[in-house]
Design a binder for these strands. Structure first.
Lengths: 215, 215
DNA sequence: GGAAAACTTGACCAAGCGGTCAAAAGTGAG
DNA sequence: CTCACTTTTGACCGCTTGGTCAAGTTTTCC
């Protein structure tokens, strides 16, 4: 699997109204299907049905299954990394991290499919976004790790390796989306009670923030 | 996909020497393949090749692809939950949790394929082990959550919801196995430097333990 | 050593799936 | 309205893959 995007009309031709609408519909259907069954587990027919069109019609907009997949991935990646971009060196460390964690939890709760899509992609070796991970993502993380390290060296955070801190935040915030069935199996119906998301967020927040506060 | 195991000689017939050997070989090969490509992404041929036998021969031992899958899952599940079993109410809370976390990290480091196998299964809705999750796993977690809650109520741990604590431990300890490519993309070669595993373990441990220590 | 049972495999089948194609139906600018 | 262009689809193709089968080979046990 390579990373080439190969949608119809890649060249500058501006898309027609119908094209815009149908691309959107397809990508939404594809996010649903891919996040549930993974790349290999999903079929073009499934996506086509969910999008309410015939398979050849779908293939008219995206020439290959991979193209749909990569497009969905690219579309969501941007939004996914946004919260980390907003971690500002000039803020109060604990507050900055609190906001970052809160935003990540919100995103996982609001768009669990997106979370699962990435989880699945990475779990299987990230064939489609490996390049992205080791360039853009690495750059962003390096940058923010430096910020955190600076905070630590100023004594405004407990000493902790910034990379590991970031990984832990990722792991915990995405857990409830990615492993939803497991959480449900253990906690049962209470997962659907109002306030559950807030309660989880509170637990994650308090544990991590307590762990990094200077004492 | 249902949960029926349907291996040959399910009935009491004791397996022959050859059967024992070949089942083992197959299950090992299957763990490798399934953990890398997921259930749908794996083919019987791949497993057969890795196991060094022909496809029909493999199917002589496990009648269906699912049977292999479920067997691998069951085999590893037991070991996977062992550390949690060993969380003892009579121990010193922080030390008990330290040991639990340490053991979980060791397992993830030593058998990342097992971790990925579960992650993939759960990510896709746990079709094969949903029943197990909501019975055995739930029972075990309920039990240990009660232990932790008791510790908290005795003031020996900072107040935290025990279920969320357990989820966080799972999330963080499995992250390095499940999202290995991402960790590698960000950290580069240092992942392979000796001592990296210990360093990660230290980071996870110190953050979680600091977060739950009474202050 | 030989029969019965266990094991192994090449050849094969049917279903599923990614992708093509040619022809029909719809759309919109002049 | 018309004609060029875009969009839609039924039918189809070839390859992959899960699973079968019958015929061969090896092991076991007397």
């Amino acid at each position: 699997m390579d990373v080439t995007v190969n949608t119809k009309k890649d060249a500058g031709d501006k898309p027609t109204r119908i094209q815009e609408i149908n691309r959107r519909i397809i990508l939404e259907a594809a996010l649903d299907v891919f996040s549930t069954y993974g790349f290999r587990g999903s079929t073009i027919d499934q996506i086509a049905e969910k999008a309410g069109m015939s398979k050849p019609n779908l293939l008219y907009y995206f020439k290959r299954k991979q193209d749909i997949y990569v497009s969905v991935l690219e579309e969501t990646l941007e939004a996914w990394l946004q919260p980390l971009h907003e971690l500002k060196p000039e803020g109060v460390p604990v507050e900055e991290l609190r906001r970052y964690i809160t935003r990540k939890i919100e995103m996982s709760a609001k768009r669990p499919e997106a979370s699962r899509l990435f989880a699945n992609e990475i779990l299987h070796g990230a064939p489609a976004i490996k390049g992205f991970l080791s360039t853009s993502l690495k750059k962003l993380v390096d940058e923010k790790a430096a910020v955190i390290r600076q905070w630590v060296s100023e004594g405004r955070l407990a000493p902790i390796d910034p990379y590991h801190l970031i990984f832990m935040i990722w792991a915990t915030t995405q857990h409830y989306a990615d492993f939803d069935v497991q959480v449900r199996a253990v906690l049962g119906a209470q997962v659907d009670r109002p306030g559950f998301a807030e309660q989880s967020a509170q637990a994650v927040l308090s544990l991590i923030l307590n762990g990094i506060k200077v004492r």
